[in-house]
Design a protein around this nucleic acid. Sequence first.
DNA 1: CTATTAAAAGAGAATCATTCTCTTTAACGG
DNA 2: CCGTTAAAGAGAATGATTCTCTTTTAATAG
Lengths: 140, 140
Amino acid sequence: MKAEEISRKLIEKGLKVTPQRIAVYEAVIQLNNHPTAESIIKNIKKTSPHIASATVYKVLDALTENGLIKRVKTEKDIMRYDAILEKHHHLYCTETDRIEDYQDEHLDRLIENYFKEKEIPDFEIEDIKLQINGKFMKNN
Amino acid sequence: MKAEEISRKLIEKGLKVTPQRIAVYEAVIQLNNHPTAESIIKNIKKTSPHIASATVYKVLDALTENGLIKRVKTEKDIMRYDAILEKHHHLYCTETDRIEDYQDEHLDRLIENYFKEKEIPDFEIEDIKLQINGKFMKNN
DNA sequence: CTATTAAAAGAGAATCATTCTCTTTAACGG
DNA sequence: CCGTTAAAGAGAATGATTCTCTTTTAATAG
């Protein structure tokens, strides 16, 4: 994407156009494989060695808040532990971060059958987990 | 679960039985809603104030490695960013941590229809994401 | 029951991504 | 151009987790 087009998008969202914002946006587009903040910072520092790491974080936040990019949350986090070992999915409350288990063998079978017919190229499925985002109706 | 039964499980796995291991295991079972290491530590320190935090982490690792508990990985992690805004799922490589997008409208419709018929009690679904774990066949 | 020894626990420093605080700079409307 | 105000810069702070090194203890054999 051209810097000009990025400028236009920033202006559309009412964000000030700065070289740092353009650089960060360009980097996220260019590093198109879900880059971490770290790899974005490294990439940008090649061309703009003086940018502060905190600035990159702030720009990423601003772009995310304005829907220009998305945060992809991954897998190495503040870990949580579970004594229940059966296969289960997660209900995830977008308001409170509460997580509940959700088991549904019928659904599992449905998905399993679907992927028996339709394979994903170059990918061998080991296991599928659903993350069902939403809201709990009651606080219990 | 009784301490005795926990001992038996530890022995089964060839792990030494220590009061700390029993306390951690009991805490994970008792705090049955996906406790974080932090809340496990807090819980244990009520009864065993002298346990070292690092010990709890080590015990959790040992229990996880031996299949006695599971790690539940959640949602606030080392964030990754994505310039692709369309709805998509993720192929997650368990070997390399590589993440690829996976779009499949047919599958989305299948799941959507399923949850039109079968509601989850006390939960309002906003959006469902699949995390498809497995291995990429080629390194490209 | 006691000694041996390998594994585990303890303590606190180190790490590392991210956030915070405070100061300086610069975008942009007038 | 100028002033206002948001944004950038710098580096300290944070906080979960890991590491390193020392001490203790569980399991085992004599």
